[in-house]
Amino acid sequence: MNIYVSNLSFAVQDEDLRGFFEEYGEVSSAKVIMDKFTNRSRGFGFVEMPSNESAQKAIKELDGATVDGRAIRVNEAKPREDRPKKSFSNSGSNRW
Rank of each mutant, 00 (worst) to 15 (best):
V74Y: 10
E23C: 03
M49F: 06
F44M: 06
L8E: 02
F37M: 11
F20G: 08
R70D: 07
F37G: 06
A55I: 04
E81C: 01
S9C: 15
L17M: 04
S9W: 12
K86C: 11
P50C: 11
E81T: 05
M1L: 10
S29D: 15
E61A: 06
T38F: 03
N2H: 09
S54R: 03
E61H: 08
V12D: 00
Q56S: 15
R73M: 13
V32E: 04
R40V: 06
F37D: 15
A65C: 11
S87P: 05
E23G: 10
E53D: 13
M1A: 13
E76A: 10
R40Y: 12
G43W: 09
R73N: 15
M49W: 08
S91Y: 08
G92C: 05
F10V: 11
G43Q: 00
N90E: 14
N52F: 01
A55F: 03
F44I: 05
N52Y: 06
V47N: 06
P79N: 06
F21S: 02
S9F: 10
S41A: 07
G45L: 02
R80G: 04
D82L: 05
Y24T: 00
A71E: 12
S28Q: 10
R73W: 11
P79R: 07
G45M: 03
E22N: 11
A30S: 05
M34W: 04
R95S: 14
D82Y: 06
F10G: 07
D16G: 09
N94P: 02
S6A: 13
L62M: 07
S51D: 15
E48S: 10
D35Q: 07
L62Q: 01
D68M: 11
V32Y: 05
Y24E: 10
K36R: 11
S93D: 12
K85H: 12
F10E: 14
P79S: 07
D35V: 01
K60I: 08
R42S: 05
T38A: 05
R95G: 09
F20S: 08
S87F: 08
V74M: 02
L8V: 03
I59P: 04
E26C: 03
S29V: 09
Y4F: 15
N94M: 11
S6K: 05
P50W: 13
T66H: 10
G92E: 08
K57C: 05
T38C: 00
G25L: 03
M1R: 08
S29A: 15
R80M: 12
S9Y: 09
Y24S: 06
E61G: 01
A55M: 02
M49I: 02
I3M: 03
S93M: 13
A77N: 04
R80N: 00
D35M: 05
R73A: 14
G25W: 13
S89H: 13
V74E: 12
I72Q: 00
G19V: 00
K78E: 10
A11M: 09
S93E: 13
Y24I: 02
K60C: 08
S28M: 12
R18E: 10
Q13N: 11
V12I: 14
F44L: 03
D14F: 01
R70T: 03
P84F: 08
M1C: 12
S6L: 04
E81G: 12
S28H: 07
G43C: 07
R42N: 07
M34F: 12
I33N: 09
G69C: 09
F44P: 03
